[in-house]
Design a protein around this nucleic acid. Structure first.
Lengths: 121, 121
DNA sequence: CCAAAGCTGTAGAATATCTACAGCCATGGC
DNA sequence: GCCATGGCTGTAGATATTCTACAGCTTTGG
């Protein structure tokens, strides 16, 4: 590799959180893949965005795990779309992933803001 | 693959945050790799832990980027150790990564707790 | 003298995300 | 009628990060 090319993969999500975000979106009701992507994007104020090349493989993965199940229907726009909904196992999984996320993000926040209880203001 | 074997790679960190955590640790003063690992672990109340196979490659990566620089010294325990310290570029990088982290974790929190301004308590 | 702890390192596996490409259908404007 | 655009699903391959597992050296203490 003559050129090192410093070729940052732009990652628009925190890795490991996509599954949780999909499950959370579905906890508001059945939805198709395209709609899930839009919901995550708009629900985060355009901060988080999922590329289709990440989204669809993730949906297939989650379905294979039994956390979501799908059904072909017609969308609002009269297009064929695969609607997903949470299974009971998926609800459990969502709780579990959220718990892990909470624990870890709190730990990181603690490391990044040490002495937060010191009330230095 | 006859057996699916569901073989979860246990990830004890949120992917993409290790560099930030290392830089943050070094912002408190020069430290060697082994000490950085301990600091992250104890500073997070044992929630976050870095394996040596993740830690040392990360340090080499950061040094190659010019965000940290190293120097061999003797440790408290009279062992040869490579002490790292932040460069000016590293301080900038830390701010940048923290900003990205804050933005994204806030966005995720918003999605996971919709209606937080609804003050239902 | 030897075990345990301190300290650094590499190789290879597993996985998640991205970029880039591909294709189909429906609607609306011309 | 035609075509562009948007809605919708999907795959292949590149890239990056983390982990597991291994390897080796030094110092101190019993």
């Amino acid at each position: 590799m003559a050129k090192q090319e410093r070729y940052q993969n732009r990652i628009e999500l925190l890795q490991g959180t996509l599954d949780m975000l999909i499950l959370q979106t579905l906890s508001w009701g059945a939805q198709h893949g395209y709609g899930i992507g839009l919901a995550i994007r708009s629900g985060s104020g355009d901060v988080l965005q999922v590329e289709t090349g990440s989204l669809y493989p993730a949906l297939h993965r989650l379905e294979k795990q039994g956390w979501i199940k799908s059904e072909w229907r017609n969308s609002e726009h009269n297009q064929r779309a695969k609607y997903y909904q949470l299974t009971a196992a998926g609800k459990k999984q969502l709780l579990s992933e959220y718990s892990r996320w909470s624990r870890m993000s709190a730990a990181i926040a603690g490391l990044m803001n040490p002495g937060e209880s010191e009330g230095q203001a």
